[in-house]
Design a binder for these strands. Structure first.
Lengths: 143, 143
DNA sequence: ATATCATGGTTGATACGTCAACCACAATAT
DNA sequence: ATATTGTGGTTGACGTATCAACCATGATAT
């Protein structure tokens, strides 16, 4: 169904991604103790919500299920990175970043940026960037 | 540390990969009940070992830790996909694909191939393929 | 012969992901 | 007023991933 060359392309692509990605994440977790998910959550609360964000909005922007987010927030709450507070106005829950969550985030940002540059951007040519941009467009249109 | 455009490249790349990859895997698991790991293990036993493979060889070719493989094989053994048998000659364990493991694998191959073509290869131009090949070379050399 | 080391594998604890079932509240229809 | 539906969130069970500690066997050095 696929010839050797086609199979190879797939494996190379998969392999490149996994290597690069795990290097970036590893660099962050080793330096700050945040997981990929932790960082994503904190980043969005900070960036889109300016310190607090409704759980459902978080679900949408993370492209996670509500279940996954709920479980993850439980763990983050336990570690003191965020708080959860029921909304006064009817249904829903506010997720609030704590000061320790905020400083973990601030510590992580430069580390993540440096790692992305080192392991990813520095490896790319102009052409690569075009490829990525075009491919992303096609993928996102295609569904 | 990173400008908006650089951040976008990263997110597009990450997003494209995750979407494509999860579509391929989902297609397989829905049709055959095999996870990505299951398929990888069975594929290698079949392809490199012709039905049986030493656990350590499996570890090497999967690029997994021995611990991860051990846990995974325990689950696969429970489901009757593989058997484990201590090697007579000293140390080590043979992992043997069962007939039900083999047929699950055979069922999966065409499904995986079709999915890779549909969600990945069909999206690529000749040029894209060349770029991916080169990129992969750079990544894999770089460590 | 026995201490030491390297290799190959297991185990337990814990974090992360997914699925299906469930619960709470609000809006709408009758 | 009360049933129905939709939205927002939780929970429990289980599969997957990682880490560190551990155990068994085989090879090497003394």
């Amino acid at each position: 169904m696929l010839n050797d060359e086609e199979m190879q392309i797939w494996h190379m692509w998969k392999g490149s991604f996994k290597r690069i990605f795990s290097r970036v994440i590893k660099e962050m977790t080793e330096h700050t103790g945040l997981s990929e998910g932790d960082f994503g959550v904190l980043d969005r609360i900070d960036h889109f919500g300016n310190g607090k964000l409704r759980q459902q909005d978080l679900v949408d922007s993370m492209e996670w299920t509500k279940s996954r987010l709920s479980h993850h927030l439980t763990r983050m709450e336990q570690r003191g990175l965020v708080l959860r507070k029921p909304l006064d106005t009817g249904n829903g829950v506010q997720v609030i970043i704590t000061s320790s969550g905020k400083s973990a985030l601030d510590d992580s940002r430069p580390i993540v940026s440096k790692a992305i540059r080192k392991y990813f951007l520095d490896q790319l040519t102009e052409q690569d960037i075009e490829l990525i941009t075009n491919l992303a467009k096609r993928i996102n249109l295609g569904s």
